[in-house]
Write a protein that binds this DNA or RNA. Structure first.
Lengths: 97, 97
DNA sequence: GTTGTTTATCGTAGAGATACGATAAACGAA
DNA sequence: TTCGTTTATCGTATCTCTACGATAAACAAC
């Protein structure tokens, strides 16, 4: 299994990638907001943050690309929620430091 | 106590700052290296990473400014070690997500 | 179809991150 | 003092991040 030969380095890269995604206060707030509400629409997040809608959308994209959240299209809206496995994975990797 | 009125936001900022410091693979590797050895000289880290000495020094500065490591001058060398309280604080903040 | 609502993307400006080589600073040893 | 070792800092080029307004895309309702 050549994959696991570098699992340590991969874990470093994975942890760094997740940490980077949470390396901005607005994105931490978004995650907390989603955890507290289980799920919500993009508009709710925009109202909750002192940022323009386009900026919030960009932060959501960053979190989505890191795998920390998921967006389900619901008519003209998008319902966002945390990806529990990714968040737990992050907690696990951090706890292992 | 006006300080604690915004402790939630402060925690977000604190978590984001620590996460940002760990948002690069090289810095994750440095932290792991220091944890595994308890402490070591800068040169050891430079040898362990595929980066120039100046680049490693810059990463060390980033980690130091985030409070995650400490550098003790020892003659012409500098002995680096993790700041256990900061690392535990980070683990605690992440676990609370 | 048109209209209004919601979200994503584009374009862009400014700030910060990342890497390196070159150089400076600090110190022990000769 | 002079030399060698070790680490930090400077200067720089390139890239990424962050923010915004403007615009496009998707859809419900009419």
């Amino acid at each position: 299994m050549p994959e696991s030969a570098h699992c340590g380095e991969n874990a470093d890269q994975e942890l760094a990638s997740l940490a980077k995604a949470l390396g901005h206060p607005a994105r931490v707030q978004i995650i907390r907001f989603l955890v507290s509400r289980n799920s919500c629409m993009c508009g709710d997040i925009v109202e909750h943050l002192p940022l323009a809608q386009s900026t919030v959308s960009q932060h959501l994209k960053t979190l989505k690309e890191a795998g920390l959240i998921r967006g389900v299209i619901n008519g003209p809206r998008v319902c966002y929620c945390v990806e529990p496995t990714a968040l737990e994975r992050f907690k696990h990797l951090v706890a292992g430091l």
